[in-house]
C-alpha cells in the first residue's frame, strides 16, 4: 500500500514537472519576455537591466530550476497585461472556478448516479427508456449550445435567472463566495447546470451499463441462489461493484470538467480561472498561461491520487500485495 502510494506520488510529481517544463518553455521561448514586459519605449539599458533582473542571462537549466522553485512557493511572476503578480490574479479567480466546478461535478455525480440506478432497476421499463433517451441527448449536445439554450429559456424568455456574471459575492478571508447571497446562488445555477449536463448524461449511461453488466455476473446469480432480497442484491452487491469503474471515470472527468469550464465561463462571462486563461491567450499574457497550466496539472494529479486512494478503500483486491495473490498458470 505505502509503496503504491509513494509510486503514485512520484509519478504525479513527474507529471507536474513535465507540464512545468512546457510552461517554462512557453514563457522563455514564445516571444521575448523582455519585449513584452518593457514595452516599446524602454531603452536598451532598461532592457538589459530587466533581462538581468529576470535572470534570463543564466543558463537554461538554472532558469528552469528557479522557475520550479518559484512556482512551488506560488510565485509565477508578473502578468504582462495588468502588471500585477500572477499569484494574486489567480487567487482572485480560484474561488469562482472551484465553486462552479464542484457544484457542477457534484450535480453530475449525484443525478448521474441516481438516474443510472433508476434506469438499471428495470432495464426494459418505460422510465429506463426515457432516461436513456434523455441522456443520449445530453451526451450529444455541445456545452455551449446547452448554455445558450438555458440562457434563452431562463434569462431571456422567463427572466428567472441572470444571464451572466457571479452576482453579489461575500468576502471571507481570501475567499470570495457567491454561495451566501441569493443573487450569487441564482447566478450559479445555470453555469453549473451547463457544466454538469454532459457529465451527468455520460455518468447516467455509464452507471446504467455497468449496473446491467454486473447484474448478469455469476456472483449476483449466486446472491439470488442464496435467497437474498432484491434490494440487498441490487444495492449492497451490485451497485458497489458497478461503482468501481465509475470512480475511475469520475476522477478523469473532473479534469475535463475544468477544461469544459472554459466554454461555460465564456458563455456565462463567469469571472473564473478559465476566463482569465482565455483572456490571457488573447493578449499573449504568457506568465498567466504558464501558471494556469501548472495549476491545472497539479489539480489533475491530486484528483488522480485521490481516486487511487478511493480504489484502495473500496476494492479489497488491491489491498494485499501482488505476491500474496494465488498464481495461475
Amino acid at each position: 500500500m505505502a509503496s503504491f502510494v509513494l509510486k503514485r506520488i512520484w509519478q504525479g510529481l513527474l507529471t507536474v514537472l513535465v507540464v512545468a517544463f512546457v510552461a517554462f518553455g512557453l514563457f522563455r521561448f514564445v516571444g521575448d519576455p523582455v519585449m513584452s514586459m518593457a514595452g516599446a519605449e524602454a531603452t536598451q539599458r532598461d532592457r538589459e537591466e530587466l533581462r538581468e533582473q529576470l535572470g534570463l542571462n543564466d543558463s537554461i537549466p538554472v532558469q528552469f530550476v528557479r522557475f520550479v522553485a518559484n512556482a512551488a512557493t506560488g510565485d509565477f511572476g508578473i502578468s504582462y497585461r495588468s502588471g500585477r503578480p500572477v499569484s494574486n490574479l489567480l487567487a482572485e479567480r480560484i474561488p469562482a472556478t472551484l465553486e462552479l466546478v464542484f457544484l457542477g461535478a457534484g450535480m453530475a455525480l449525484l443525478f448521474g448516479v441516481l438516474l443510472g440506478i433508476a434506469a438499471a432497476l428495470r432495464p426494459r421499463g418505460r422510465l429506463s427508456r426515457f432516461i436513456l433517451t434523455g441522456s443520449l441527448a445530453g451526451v450529444c449536445l455541445p456545452t455551449f449550445v446547452n448554455g445558450i439554450l438555458l440562457i434563452y429559456l431562463f434569462a431571456v424568455t422567463l427572466r428567472w435567472l441572470p444571464s451572466f456574471g457571479r452576482g453579489e459575492t461575500v468576502q471571507i478571508g481570501v475567499w470570495s463566495t457567491g454561495l451566501l447571497t441569493s443573487s450569487g446562488l441564482r447566478s450559479l445555477i445555470m453555469p453549473a447546470l451547463t457544466l454538469a449536463l454532459f457529465q451527468l448524461a455520460m455518468l447516467t449511461r455509464l452507471v446504467y451499463s455497468e449496473m446491467t453488466d454486473v447484474m448478469q455476473t455469476d456472483f449476483i446469480r449466486f446472491c439470488r441462489a442464496r435467497g437474498l432480497d432484491r434490494r440487498s442484491i441490487f444495492f449492497r452487491h451490485g451497485l458497489r461493484s458497478a461503482l468501481m469503474p465509475v470512480v475511475t471515470v469520475v476522477g478523469l472527468n473532473i479534469g475535463s470538467v475544468i477544461a469544459f469550464s472554459a466554454i461555460t465561463e465564456t458563455v456565462f462571462q463567469w469571472p473564473g480561472l478559465s476566463l482569465l486563461f482565455v483572456d490571457s491567450i488573447r493578449f499573449g499574457d504568457i506568465p498567466v498561461m504558464a501558471a494556469y497550466l501548472v495549476l491545472v496539472s497539479f489539480v489533475f494529479v491530486l484528483i488522480n491520487l485521490a481516486v487511487d486512494l478511493i480504489y484502495f478503500a473500496i476494492d479489497p483486491r488491491l489491498r494485499v500485495s501482488r505476491a500474496g495473490a494465488p498464481a495461475h498458470g
Binding site: R221, F222, R240, D315
Partner: peptide, 15 residues
C-alpha cells in the same frame, strides 16, 4: 442450497 461451477466468480469479491 446452490453450488455453482466457478468458485472464482460465485463469491462477491468486495465482501
Amino acid at each position: 442450497g446452490a453450488i455453482f461451477q466457478d468458485p472464482m466468480t460465485a463469491l462477491d469479491p468486495l465482501f
